[in-house]
Design a protein around this nucleic acid. Sequence first.
DNA 1: GCAAAAGTGTTATACGTACACCCATGT
DNA 2: ACATGGGTGTACGTATAACACTTTTGC
Lengths: 216, 216
Amino acid sequence: MRRLVTLLPIRSARRRGAQLTPPQPRPRGHQRLESLDETARRELAEETGVEAGSLHLEQVGLYSAPDRDPRTPRVITCAYLAIAPNLPSPRAGSDARTARWSPVAETRELRLAFDHNQILADAVELARDQLQFRAIAPAFCQREFTIAELREVFEAVWGVSLDKPNFHRKVTDSPGFLVPTGRKRPTGNGRPATLYRAGPATALVPPMMRPSAPAS
Amino acid sequence: MRRLVTLLPIRSARRRGAQLTPPQPRPRGHQRLESLDETARRELAEETGVEAGSLHLEQVGLYSAPDRDPRTPRVITCAYLAIAPNLPSPRAGSDARTARWSPVAETRELRLAFDHNQILADAVELARDQLQFRAIAPAFCQREFTIAELREVFEAVWGVSLDKPNFHRKVTDSPGFLVPTGRKRPTGNGRPATLYRAGPATALVPPMMRPSAPAS
DNA sequence: GCAAAAGTGTTATACGTACACCCATGT
DNA sequence: ACATGGGTGTACGTATAACACTTTTGC
């Protein structure tokens, strides 16, 4: 089952610059100024071990309701959506002590603090939308992947099941989306699947339309 | 010609809460806490005279590159996109002293300070995308409008020309998008157009796909 | 009547969907 | 040989685009 969501605790979220009050001076010298995007990328790498290169990062939005944290007014959070393959479990003992993975289908049942359920819902919805038009699906996979693995990404994020033959055509016909590596991967049982890498295209043309009703 | 963009100066952008440093205490007492969305809505109303009710407001994004304002590091801006009809000219003598209107087609030629060209481009791109799927186009019009006026919105924002008959069907067939008022407006020359109001629908189904290449 | 703008009908084409079918491999 | 999963072909329904056509007004 594909896991897509990590939840970093509030304490960590504050330290990593997600809160927009001026940052505390860092203990060891040489405090280089960085954008929030860079901060999010660096801290996520530090806490989960994901190398920054293979990481698709995107702003979800700014959450600034004055009473969103009843303990302290004026806590403002900028939420990010990260897309990456093969994420390791959050490191025990790190800031992300209570971080965990959750399948997309179960995110609605989670009970998070403050407005984090809303933030998470917005992030999932953003991922679902982006998947239709942008060529970000390979970011969920290894550097080389099969069409079936790519299809599982769409099925997991959208919570639907897609027609295998039509999906195959759509992704292979989309210009610049996939480049075959020439290699094949034995499936153990059945014909081996050809391996692909992410192509140069940034958009998916024509778009992969998301079915309205969840299929069986 | 339809004008869509207002540019508020930096000085104003700071005071209205677009900068995310803790807000200065306001001179007259009773400083109610508000979210950034509320701040943007209130300040835009104060400076342009747009009543808050008929205003579609949306976050564009957060701009936090450390050197985006070379005079002061760490100036962070949350940009908003506002959609409203019939905007009056910015008030002389107000904070928005250098604010002005610009047609969408000419926004690429503008020379703005700092990263504001990028912010403006992002906002226009957001408006273009949203127009396809959300029922926000009537927010550009008066409370009652004709199909032709609605079509001019799409043509102005997208920079294309659309087929009149097909556009008419699409918008009238989209359930809950438009409600006819029963009244008609004489065009001066030709058959009078029936007037519509914005319907309850929030999404445009099916979406109004934006043509890829600009038509003649 | 004529011009002009609103609105309707009609047709060809493109697209997505469903599903039958073939291909390549392990046992 | 046969089961299994990868991949291709094909037919059908629906949506879109292009444009001819009708309707309603002012002059």
